[in-house]
């Protein structure tokens, strides 16, 4: 067994990253996650800026408490679009998820679509007929709205 392999083996048996490092990594991850959420909200507002200016829709930002097992409780912003009598909300679900660096559920009165952050960008998750990731952008957001709104 080479020295590198031995070290990796012992580290795996020791339970991974030391506790202090793990906590700071998680805090850093949470901070990055919150910035990504804010940036996404800014993009969404930009996509719909004309409609907001014309009074067709309204944006509301509310802080809610999010609990993630290893990170603990922290505040995160929920962006809500008020369109006519309907609302569509971007509800962050957390950064500690399987296979990606963060997830937001977009909830409307007719349904929910999930977007995830992975590989430096946001993706729309499609599960049927099989798992697919599509870029989340102005065009796909229009599809999402038509699916989650009545």
């Amino acid at each position: 067994m080479s020295r590198t392999t031995l070290e990796a083996f012992i580290r795996s048996k020791a339970g991974g990253t030391p506790r202090g490092d793990r906590e700071s990594e998680l805090q850093a991850r949470k901070d990055v996650w919150l910035k990504r959420v804010s940036r996404l909200y800014a993009d969404v507002r930009k996509w719909l800026a004309d409609l907001e200016r014309d009074g067709v829709l309204r944006f509301d930002l509310d802080k809610v408490a999010l609990e993630e097992r290893e990170i603990g409780q922290y505040d995160v912003e929920v962006l809500t679009l008020a369109i006519g009598k309907q609302q569509v909300a971007f509800c962050p679900k957390g950064t500690l998820i399987v296979g990606a660096d963060g997830r937001i559920d977009i909830q409307g009165q007719r349904g929910v679509r999930t977007i995830i952050f992975s590989g430096g960008r946001w993706h729309l998750v499609t599960r049927t007929p099989k798992l697919r990731l599509l870029p989340f952008n102005e065009d796909s957001f229009q599809d999402v709205l038509s699916e989650v709104m009545r």
Binding site: E68, I97, V98, G99, R103, V125, K130
Partner: peptide, 14 residues
């Protein structure tokens, strides 16, 4: 790697 069915699930959901 994990099965695609778990993709995007949180720890609580898993």
């Amino acid at each position: 790697t994990t099965h695609p069915r778990f993709f995007a699930m949180s720890l609580d959901e898993v």
